[in-house]
C-alpha cells in the first residue's frame, strides 16, 4: 500500500520529469513521438477528470438546492444552463452528436455568443470599478512608499492620455521612461527569481525531495 501511495508516484514523477527535460533538448523524431504520446495520455486523464469535475459541480449545487442555502436559486440555474447546453450540443445544429461539433452556427453557438460572452464581458468590466476602489485605498499617501506609488501612478496614468501631453509636453516620455526603466527592472527581477524558483521546485519534485503534493510531506 505504501508502495502505491508513495513510491510509485515518486517513480512516475521522476521518470516523467526526466523524459520532459530530455525531450526539450532532443529534436529526434523518437523524442517527438514520445512527447506526443504523453500528451495524448494527458488528454485521456483530463477526460476522466472532467467527469469527476462535472460530478463535483453538480453535487455542490445539488446540495445547495436541497438544503435551500442562501442563493440556492443560482444553483438551480446551473442545472438549467447545463441541461440546455447539453441538449444543444447533442442537437449540434441538426447534425446530431456523432458528427463534429458545429462551431459557427446553431443554438449552442448562439447561446455561447449571446449569454456566456456578454456575461464574461460584464464581469470583466466590473474590474474597472474594482481598480478604482483598490486604487483609492492604496493611493492614500500614509507612508513614503505609498506616496511614491501615488506619484508614479499619477504620472503614468496622465502620461498615457492626450491631456497629459497638453499639461506638460514631457509627461508621456516620463511615463514611458517609468515603464521602461524602473518598472521593467522590477519585473525582470521578479522573473529572474521565478525562473530559478521554477528550476528548484522542478528539481525538488523530480528527485522526490518535495513530497507535499502527495499529501503528507515527509514519511
Amino acid at each position: 500500500m505504501l508502495f502505491l501511495r508513495r513510491t510509485l508516484p515518486l517513480i512516475i514523477a521522476f521518470v516523467m520529469g526526466v523524459i520532459g527535460i530530455l525531450c526539450f533538448y532532443i529534436p529526434h523524431s523518437a523524442a517527438e513521438s514520445l512527447e506526443l504520446e504523453l500528451t495524448k495520455w494527458d488528454r485521456i486523464v483530463a477526460a476522466f477528470a472532467l467527469v469527476l469535475g462535472i460530478y463535483s459541480l453538480m453535487r455542490l449545487h445539488w446540495t445547495r438546492v436541497r438544503r435551500q442555502n442562501p442563493g440556492w436559486g443560482y444553483s438551480f440555474l446551473v442545472f438549467v444552463g447545463f441541461a440546455i447546453m447539453t441538449l444543444f450540443a447533442i442537437y449540434n445544429d441538426g447534425q446530431g452528436p456523432l458528427n463534429p461539433q458545429e462551431i459557427d452556427t446553431g443554438p449552442f453557438v448562439w447561446m455561447y455568443n449571446n449569454v456566456q460572452v456578454p456575461a464574461d464581458a460584464t464581469m470583466f468590466s466590473i474590474l474597472a470599478f474594482f481598480i478604482a476602489s483598490a486604487a483609492y485605498r492604496t493611493f492614500r499617501a500614509r507612508t513614503p512608499e505609498a506616496a511614491i506609488l501615488l506619484v508614479s501612478a499619477i504620472i503614468v496614468m496622465i502620461g498615457r492620455v492626450p491631456i497629459g501631453a497638453a499639461i506638460y509636453h514631457a509627461l508621456p516620455d516620463l511615463a514611458q521612461w517609468m515603464m521602461d526603466v524602473p518598472n521593467l527592472a522590477a519585473k525582470r527581477g521578479i522573473l529572474l527569481g521565478v525562473s530559478l524558483g521554477a528550476v528548484a521546485t522542478a528539481l525538488r519534485i523530480i528527485f522526490g525531495i518535495e513530497r507535499s503534493y502527495l499529501g503528507g510531506g515527509e514519511e
Binding site: R5, V45, A49, V51, G53, I54, S212, G215, G216, G217
Partner: peptide
C-alpha cells in the same frame, strides 16, 4: 477551475487529514 487540479487537491487534502 481545473478538474485534474481538483482531483489532485482532493487527494492531497485527504492525505493531510489522514496524517
Amino acid at each position: 477551475n481545473d478538474p485534474i487540479v481538483m482531483a489532485v487537491s482532493r487527494e492531497v487534502v485527504k492525505e493531510s487529514y489522514l496524517n
